[in-house]
Design a binder for these strands. Structure first.
Lengths: 336, 336
DNA sequence: CTGAAAGCGCTTACAG
DNA sequence: CTGAAAGCGCTTACAG
């Protein structure tokens, strides 16, 4: 490795280093690493061999300066502690890499406004993928200004350069409500998330609409934070204040908390005395100790749609904003 | 935004665009965005205003060509589906960003060898952080050749440019074994992970050593895959073949699976008939339906150590390889 | 098929 | 305090 005048970290091997050692021009080295460029096969082999020996790789940062693509994609994982969001990111990462894009993962706490702090928009991103139940207008504005395509997952954004993939929340929750009504439940409680989230409002509206269609209203509604603990607290409050025979929860984590409180603290038999449903079908929902009745919000389909929207938009940036709807499936297990 | 000759995506605004509009040189624009450079305050304000209007940000890729740092750090998240590893990545991401580094997250499946596929080493990474129970020699060799500092979490790597942070696995499992021996257990089973993992071998050895100190040996050992389902299967096999009064599991996910099988399928009362312990103290371990006795492998401490090792090494790349050991805490809940 | 040259967008001595 | 110039490491027309 080449030495460094400052005496610190040795500098990275460059194409010129390889060119000198192999007795060719830097252009030849560049061509040896290019799929499309013309170069004598024997010469290419020699260059690749010397490069391998010296530990040379073309510097993607320098190459990116010439190309129109950086292959860098920012992934904003709003609630990375949330089981379902974590599963999404876990599957999205390999899918992006397989598509030749490197995911720079960011948690929701990063402030897009503050120019003084590290700024992800310093990088010429190919695109940004955002997971979240609500739209961060600052992000959308920044992407618009910088002309960075945006893919939203979790809610629908209306803008020219933005694509969205979104679960049919209302329809899904409607199925849960229908199932419970049909089973004979009449006194419904609801545990939701922050009503600032579009996805939350859709889920609530979907459940309420189907209850109303059956001539029913929620007896009580509480909003929590999409966590097991939040669902536990909400269920404790709800079930001690009201006589209920069904609790519809806006996601699985809260439903599992509610289920645990109902059984262990309230001494209720689920599903004999009480029905509980969730949303997402996270891994834990199918654990035999829970066997939660829920709606599958399929991560694999979601990831496939996101990557598809991303690649087609990169291929044609002039495309109008598109929305991919994802159909949730009712998974009727043992808690309804 | 400037138009593009090719008619495709408009190109990004450059310092020259801003310079022209503001009537200054490109150097001045560059200085306006630099903390250290001298520039007239009024001129800086003007430039920043024009830049803001035009949506300009210095391109980190071009800037990185001149600097010694790219601020890009690769995070290899071996088992991103694993609850404990997922929690680690979830906390590591904001910690790195707060330290001014952007995490490019990679799943373990990415092949470091294959030059044809997308190659993370094309980017001049400041460092690489690897989470895993075993060492990928290919990665270590690649980092050595490219002089990229490496921080390992989950096992110890002996090399000049590599720092490791590692839980005291043997000591932790020893505490679990001691607790159960002291409680009067005599017929021990063990559910471990792949024995190719150093962490797995340490955990097993730690438990066995303390059993032997009490004159005991494991009655039966099985190795699974660190998942709830794997732990369930192993427990089914173990408990139907052997009469056991304690099962030590190498992680929490497997312990929760084993606990569920013991109670629901085998009709065993835990902790009356059988003790079960885990390792990690993942969030689910404290759910009231489990209340698992386990060893806390503290994610926050681990993340703090990783970032600390990273920053000190970047400050002085000549440092010898260091190891930060993390003390696990016995969390005695209700399953022992 | 090849090398010399221009240029990608930035930063940083260098003169002034 | 400022601008013109050199240079970071690469790619890509341009002549040959």
């Amino acid at each position: 490795m080449a030495s460094d005048a400052t005496g610190g970290r040795p500098r990275r091997i460059t194409a010129l280093d390889v060119a000198r050692r192999a007795g060719v021009s830097r252009s030849a080295v560049s061509r040896a690493f290019s799929r499309t460029a013309y170069i004598d096969p024997g010469k290419r082999a020699l260059i690749l061999k010397v490069a391998e020996e010296m530990g040379y790789r073309p510097n993607a940062l320098a190459a990116g300066l010439m190309r129109t693509r950086s292959n860098l994609v920012a992934v904003v994982a709003g609630e990375i502690g949330n089981f379902h969001d974590a599963a999404l990111v876990a599957q999205l990462v390999p899918a992006l890499i397989a598509a030749g894009k490197w995911p720079i993962v960011i948690d929701g706490s990063v402030d897009a406004e503050d120019l003084g702090t590290p700024d992800i928009f310093s990088y010429p991103l190919d695109a940004m993928i955002v997971r979240g139940g609500s739209v961060d207008e600052t992000l959308v504005a920044a992407c618009a200004k910088l002309n960075i395509p945006l893919v939203f997952s979790g809610c629908i954004v209306e803008a020219d350069f933005v694509d969205s993939v979104c679960c049919l929340n209302a329809g899904g929750m409607g199925m849960a409500a229908d199932l419970l009504v049909q089973r004979g439940r009449r006194r419904f409680g609801y545990i939701g998330g922050p009503s600032s989230w579009a996805s939350e409002r859709e889920r609530f509206a979907g459940a309420r609409a189907r209850l109303r269609a059956a001539g029913l209203e929620f007896v009580a509604c509480l909003s929590a934070d999409y966590t097991f603990e939040g669902g536990s607290r909400a269920a404790r409050d709800l079930l001690s204040a009201q006589q209920l025979d069904a609790v519809i929860c806006a996601n699985d984590a809260m439903a599992l908390g509610a289920l645990t409180v109902a059984r262990q603290e309230m001494g209720l038999a689920v599903p004999v005395d009480l029905s509980i449903t969730g949303f997402d079908d996270i891994g834990q929902a199918s654990w035999p100790c829970f066997n939660l009745t829920t709606l599958r919000n399929p991560v694999d389909t979601m990831v496939a749609r996101i990557v598809d929207l991303l690649l087609t938009r990169l291929a044609d940036p002039t495309l109008p904003g598109r929305v991919a709807y994802i159909e949730p499936d009712l998974i009727a297990r043992d808690t309804h």
